[in-house]
Amino acid sequence: MRKINQKDIDNRLTKAIRELSDPKSYDLVCHEHRLGEPMPSIDKLAKMVDKIRQIIFPGYFGDINLNLGTIEYYIGVMVDEVFELISEQILAGLCFSCSSDSERPEMLQLEKDASQIATKFIEGLPEIRRIMTTDVNAAYLGDPAANGIGEVIFCYPATRAISNYRIAHHLLKLGVPLIPRIITEMAHSETGIDIHPRAEIGEYFSIDHGTGVVIGSTSVIGKNVKLYQGVTLGAKSFPLDENGNPIKGIPRHPVVEDNVVVYSNATVLGRITIGHDSVIGGNVWVTNSLPPHSKVVQVKSRQAEFVDGSGI
């Protein structure tokens, strides 16, 4: 049996440690934590989002069997828990976004800011519930396979993805850094539906099946829009600055007006406008604006014979 050379192992491990500790190797991928500052926590954010779902959809989630006679107490408990969780995570996002000590406000001020933002977020929950109600209703009315509103809330991945988006979008509008993106990426990992929190999406929005849907950050979607699986609302190109780097923040994703349906695996690219009441068929590419009431489909299929493998 070959003898273990412990000295050789120690030397190799020491060499790896030195290389990993070289500032040149981690210059772009290291975050130096400041003592006393909270870090964003995916676990705590997941807990927070779950509790917000309990508030938005009372009686559907959580371990408590809801009694309508005590709903105000129930909502009050949930709101208190969400307020504590979200205040801490907002503070973590604010701290994380300060890249240098010169940019960093006093911790007491950051805590006050986080508390104010958390309060405004809680004040916006009734509106989030209102618009999520329209989304759930759109999914139910638009899917013959849905047996009830409860099935849409419990089972549909789009409900989870859209609710994460609505929560994250509200936080983004309140000026919270980083945390909104984490929340939408949590839903992306769970459902395969990728909605950037900066996208603007109107009410009665639905995604059928959902897997593979991508909605870019500067997308604007009107009311009563329905997307099927695999749809991409993406960017066609990235303008570069004088240094050859992509220019960030400019509108580069589609504007989809009211009452539009986009079928599976369609790709809509660039800052174009899809006019209201239009239908985009499956597996097509759209890179130019469409007027209202447009219908875009693939070229008509043709019948072919396949004999002994010919034609394949």
Rank of each mutant, 00 (worst) to 15 (best):
Y140R: 08
Y140D: 07
L141Y: 08
L141I: 09
L141R: 15
A145Y: 13
A146P: 14
A146W: 15
G148I: 15
G150W: 07
E151G: 05
E151Q: 13
V152Y: 06
I153G: 07
F154M: 12
F154N: 09
C155A: 12
C155K: 07
Y156G: 01
Y156I: 01
Y156P: 00
P157K: 01
P157E: 06
A158G: 04
A158P: 07
A158S: 11
T159L: 01
R160S: 08
R160K: 15
A161R: 06
I162N: 05
I162W: 02
S163M: 02
N164H: 14
Y165G: 13
Y165E: 09
Y165T: 09
R166G: 04
R166I: 03
R166L: 04
R166M: 03
A168S: 13
H169M: 05
L171T: 10
L172S: 11
L174D: 13
L174M: 14
G175E: 06
P177D: 10
P180C: 11
I182N: 12
I183E: 03
T184S: 01
T184D: 01
E185M: 06
A187L: 04
H188V: 00
H188E: 00
S189K: 00
S189L: 00
E190M: 05
G192V: 05
G192I: 03
G192T: 03
G192W: 05
I193A: 06
I193C: 07
D194I: 09
D194T: 13
I195M: 04
I195T: 02
P197D: 13
P197G: 11
R198N: 15
R198P: 12
R198Y: 15
